[in-house]
Amino acid sequence: MARFFTAEHEWIEVDGDSATVGITDYAQAQLGDLVFVEVPAVGTALAKGKEAAVVESVKAASDVYSPVSGTVTEANGALEDDPALVNSAAEGEGWFYRLTIADEGELDGLMDEGAYKDFVAGLD
């Protein structure tokens, strides 16, 4: 399994032709206390770089973009009752959705963990 990252602070963990998506710990820290998370319904066709989910902190709503195109196979229902799970475990239990990967070639432009760390370090 390999994990990749986007410049919009999503992570995607690839397992064969499917993957799990969430937002990074850096992203949750920037957003602050999350009070609402809307994850896509199973069967939703997502396009790379387009809105896939919504997170709301006390102050603002933000879009979460899909790192790759594909069809949603599972959504993390736990986030509906406990959006703060994203704050406490963004890169683990606070995952957003799973999807089938439509085009593995779309993974090529994503960052690996080291590249993402450097990217975040350059933001502050």
Partner: peptide, 12 residues
């Protein structure tokens, strides 16, 4: 500051 160290909900 939008918030200090505690976060908005904790401060609220």
């Amino acid at each position: 500051p939008i918030q200090y160290s505690g976060g908005i909900i904790a401060e609220h």
